[in-house]
Design a protein around this nucleic acid. Structure first.
Lengths: 351, 351
DNA sequence: ATAAGTAACGAAAACGTTTGCGTGTTGACA
DNA sequence: TGTCAACACGCAAACGTTTTCGTTACTTAT
């Protein structure tokens, strides 16, 4: 095959040289400035079209001191919820002329910091992020504070922390889980267990609280043995067997469990599996509700009743918030927190 | 709350002014040039550290004419396979000092073109992409050709097209599906059906061919009625009921089906559900294998035997290929195609 | 003492834009 | 013919770097 002729990207300077005019004339001609005669304007535009001229983004970014790019840092991308959020972010970002650059913290504090530093040096105009578990555990938020201090706006979603002053998009974890548990209780469940995470994950804590609140509403007192706090480290990759054993233990110790609320989809699915193996019928003998609506819930058998977080909507709202902030003229800083309503999606794991 | 004092990002110029030296001196001092005296070097570096100086990425990009950023265009991000690929890309990109900027084509030709144009104007050094269905259908690849012609390298993965000359990372769809179907046949299946897509999706076509090859190997002749070509449009969002009905029809017309190979995970899961509703036992009466290993396969009941595509590995290889290309000195263009081996992950839907 | 060499720094160009302002040419009008 | 607009264009600065090439001032050797 013959070496193909490359039509490298053309610049204003090259157009100027070809047409024997100055760079500024070319620039103005392309932007339809009235300073330029009809004649040369047409000439320049024709030439530019012919060579498919497009202004260099980097040069524009440098000149305008804004990149029209937003940085997104999330703990994991192979995760239904987070990818839905990204889809939402990308949707409105694109609509408003922005690009999206993603960094994965992989739930690690160091990677989160590195990633933010890598992007904060002019590559982006602002951040949208969800805090990694390790960061939440260590409670070290200096990188967020510094970033904000340098004048770079941040929007946090889902996994947030009150200590940081910035825009936030969250769901009402407490209300969502309270509703879910209430649903189980009104459906006749008398011994509802909860499968949750250790408390340092803020959402886990809130969802546990919602469980307790629901019990209280129904004048029932919580039993410690019905609260299973799973160590997330164990579940991280493929140590699901230990989780299964823990849940099995829960069921065997409490034969009367007739309802389970799990703080995420996977826990619920696994719990259903264990229950079925123990001979319980769903939803006749025992009912299940999970938090975080994903593919598993929809396609499991029986399909799982879940609390939907509306991930895509969260992403959209976060992007709106950030871009509004970026394009706002007045420098008055006022931070808003958007609360997305959760929704109970009823399927076949409940009566 | 008092207005916080902002420590805006500091530049070389500001350091120079503060320390009463020239910009070049500051730059050299920070890069440990021997031209600079020990004295001023220390002074500059101390000042820089104090004010947390970091070189502006955009300025560097402009000067070096490379952004250290790679653009990724995929059809959908809420998809286990694609998110795994992104994870792989991000992993090696990060390791090699690159950022990743993602664009979603949403399976649309126009959005694919727009997205590429948006990024090709200097924002990135090269593309990694998987072609949208609409583009494959229309067979209009001019945007790829133009991009490559402008000297911007492209690496395609999974959904590729031979017509374009560039690096590629694919799996051996034919071999993978042939292996899967052979597995069913050696397990004793005598009437294996395939649930596949319309032919314009290249991978669907290849996987169908693998199915036929396997039959041939076992001296069996294909029956047209055992080949179900699903119209993808119908399945796109939530029109799964029609898919269920189609599959139900397949089973009812061919009572003797004892094995099913589906070209993706979802089809297999739904087929299993339909089969179970029809009273068939899995894997005793009928066995299932799906392509594309995802969360559904692992957590379904029974868990689904699948052909794993090793999405993360694909992403890693694609990124290696692209970055190697970007950092190669010699301009000799030679395109390589990496074929990732598929792996049959046996679970409980087969004997 | 003078030539040569060296150490330490600054000026300027370059990357590709946009834009305020200066400047030359034309034409009209007094 | 001289003055003044209007028109059409170019210059140069700016965004923040890096790097080449001077340019000093001082030291060393002859």
């Amino acid at each position: 095959m013959p070496a193909t002729i490359m039509k490298k990207k053309i610049t204003l300077k090259q157009i100027a040289r070809e047409l024997d005019v100055s760079i500024s004339t070319v620039s103005k001609a392309l932007r339809n400035s009235i300073e330029i005669s009809e004649d040369t304007r047409q000439k320049v535009q024709a030439f530019a079209k012919l060579y498919n001229y497009r202004p260099n983004n980097i040069a524009l970014s440098l000149k305008n001191r804004k990149t029209k790019t937003i940085g997104v840092i999330i703990p994991d991308i192979v995760h239904h919820f987070f990818s839905k959020v990204i889809r939402g972010i990308e949707l409105v970002a694109n609509k408003r002329g922005y690009n999206v650059i993603v960094g994965l913290s992989n739930e690690s504090f160091d990677k989160e910091v590195i990633n933010m530093q890598m992007l904060a040096n002019g590559s982006i105009d602002g951040f949208i992020l969800s805090i990694s578990k390790e960061t939440l555990q260590q409670q070290d938020y200096h990188h967020f504070k510094e970033t904000i201090n340098q004048g770079m706006p941040i929007v946090m979603f889902d996994r947030i922390v009150n200590e940081i002053n910035c825009d936030k998009v969250i769901i009402d974890d407490l209300k969502g889980s309270k509703n879910a548990v209430s649903k189980l209780l009104s459906n006749g469940c008398e011994n509802v267990a909860i499968i949750t995470t250790k408390d340092y994950v803020s959402v886990g804590k809130l969802r546990t609280q919602g469980y307790l609140n629901a019990l209280e509403d129904f004048k029932m007192s919580p039993e410690t043995d019905l609260i299973l706090k799973v160590d997330d480290e164990l579940v991280s990759e493929d140590h699901l067997e230990s989780l299964e054993r823990e849940i099995e233990g829960l069921f065997k110790r409490n034969k009367n469990i007739d309802g389970v609320f799990a703080v995420n989809e996977l826990y619920a699915i696994i719990a259903m599996k264990v229950a079925r193996n123990l001979g319980m019928r769903i939803p006749e003998d025992i009912q299940f509700i999970g938090f975080t609506d994903g593919v598993l819930s929809k396609h499991a058998t029986p399909s799982l009743t879940t609390v939907s977080q509306h991930g895509q909507l969260m992403g959209e709202k976060a992007a709106e918030l950030l871009i509004d902030n970026l394009e706002r003229e007045d420098e008055m800083e006022h931070y808003t927190t958007i609360v997305i309503e959760t929704e109970l999606i009823e399927r076949n794991s409940t009566k």
